[in-house]
Amino acid sequence: MAGGREQQKALSKDIASIGQLLAQLQQENPMLAQALQHVSTNYVVNQEICHADAPIKDTDEIAFLPPMSGG
């Protein structure tokens, strides 16, 4: 994650999707939220690639992955 690898956040009950989480981050840290919404970002919830409307809940592991490149 920009400025750090991981953050632990308590998820409020009105946040039920990655899109809503990004909206909350937009309030707290607009630069971070903007970076995470880059078109090439992959959203991963509990190690499954998801869309922005994928449901999330407290205790989920959520990852925002920049373009990947192995090999």
Partner: peptide, 21 residues
């Protein structure tokens, strides 16, 4: 090359850069 979750940072004498596909 394009889909494996690795992120590469190349370092040279003058700086460093993330490498994308």
């Amino acid at each position: 090359k394009t889909d494996a979750p690795f992120w590469k940072k190349e370092k040279t004498a003058t700086g460093e850069a993330w490498i994308e596909p």
